[in-house]
Simulated scan of single mutants.
Amino acid sequence: MTTTVSTPAAVTADEDEAHRVRRRRRLSPGRRLPAARLAGPVLVVVLWAVASAAGQLDPGAIPAPWTVVRTAGRLWADGTLPTDVLTSLERAAYGFLIGLTAGVALALASGLSRVGEALIDGTVQLNRAIPTLGLIPLFILWLGIGETFKIAIIAIVVYIPIYLNTHAALSGIDSRYVELAEVQGLSKFRFVRQIVVPGALPGFFVGLRLGVTGSWLGLVVLEQINATSGLGYLMFQAQNYGQSDVILVGLLIYGVFGLVSDSVVRLIERRVLAWRRTLSS
């Protein structure tokens, strides 16, 4: 029976390697704790509360956090806030889904075909150069003042970053993978499914995060244009009556929606792109 004895040098080398692996995993972006993202917002709220309690803030301009909470409770109890929140969520969801579909479809058509790139990319770049909110008067003439033009503008705000980042990722596929696919005799469909799509996913998720944020930024402006409900309408009415606490309620809800939606996208990204962390470790 043979007994293997580990020398001190071998043990030290194994410990060093294990330490390097643990360090790489700690430094990997996928290892960040979701709760850590709340540290900044919580610190801002604490400083806001301390300044309000110390009398350093004008209550008429910046009400105390507890005042904003009481106002939110009152608006929720009388049914105003639930209705406006649901309306805003519905507008954002429709616009986001349309923009997501358009951005991915156009990016695939442009990134996988030279003819598609010639027809699509220049048009999207032109659209990108035009301020999206500057299209509002034209869209009102085309689609009317109702819900349709609001959803259309949100869709434009969403599709542009998704298209740009996905298209860039598709165009940046390493040529060595193309050569490898030719050597392996992969069909075009298998090449797209097994190499192109996985390679473009990191860029797609970058565009998706920007698109999610853009949908809320566009919504806060659009809901103040001839709207009868929604968080933006609530804030616009509060401005007319000098109700800064109501305005802060709307802004905080928009911020929570943005943070939650971005966190959801990041969670999906970590699940889908788990293979990148495996390779890096």
Rank of each mutant, 00 (worst) to 15 (best):
D78L: 12
Y94Q: 11
D58F: 00
V44H: 00
V115K: 05
T83I: 15
A51P: 03
G95V: 00
V46D: 08
Q56A: 14
A54F: 08
L47G: 09
V44D: 05
L112K: 00
G103I: 07
S110H: 04
V115I: 09
T67D: 08
A102I: 10
L97Y: 01
W48D: 11
L97P: 02
L97A: 03
T71L: 08
L112N: 10
A61E: 13
R70I: 12
L112P: 07
L97D: 02
A102R: 00
A61R: 13
G103R: 04
V44S: 03
A105G: 05
W48A: 07
T101M: 09
V50A: 07
L108S: 03
A51F: 11
G55C: 02
R114Y: 06
Y94E: 11
T80A: 14
A109W: 06
A54W: 04
T83F: 15
P82L: 15
W76T: 14
L89N: 13
A53Y: 07
T101R: 04
V45G: 06
T83D: 15
V44K: 06
R91A: 05
L106I: 00
L57Y: 01
G103N: 06
I62C: 09
A102C: 05
G99C: 08
A109I: 05
S52P: 06
L81M: 10
P63Y: 05
L97W: 02
G73I: 12
S110F: 01
S113R: 02
W48Q: 05
V46R: 01
L81E: 12
A109E: 04
T87D: 12
G99L: 01
P63M: 05
V46L: 01
I98W: 09
P63Q: 02
L108R: 00
D78I: 13
S88V: 07
A49Q: 09
S113G: 03
A105T: 14
L89C: 10
A93P: 13
T67E: 11
G95I: 10
V46N: 00
L47A: 12
L108V: 03
T87W: 11
V104D: 08
L112D: 00
L89K: 13
R74T: 14
V45T: 05
A93V: 13
D84G: 10
A107D: 08
A92V: 10
T101C: 14
A53H: 12
V45Y: 06
S110C: 00
A61N: 12
S110Y: 07
V115T: 06
T87V: 15
G79D: 14
D58T: 04
G111C: 07
L89V: 11
D78Y: 12
F96P: 03
I62K: 09
W76Y: 15
T67Q: 10
A107Q: 04
V68G: 01
L75N: 12
R74V: 10
V68Y: 04
R114G: 04
P82Y: 13
V50H: 07
L47F: 11
L47M: 14
A51M: 03
A92F: 03
A92S: 13
V45R: 02
A107Y: 01
V42W: 04
G99T: 08
V85D: 05
P65F: 13
P59V: 05
G99I: 01
A77G: 14
L112Q: 11
W48V: 05
L81R: 12
L108H: 06
G99N: 02
L75V: 06
A105F: 02
L57Q: 00
G79Q: 12
W48C: 05
A102P: 04
A77N: 15
S113D: 11
A107E: 06
G55Q: 00
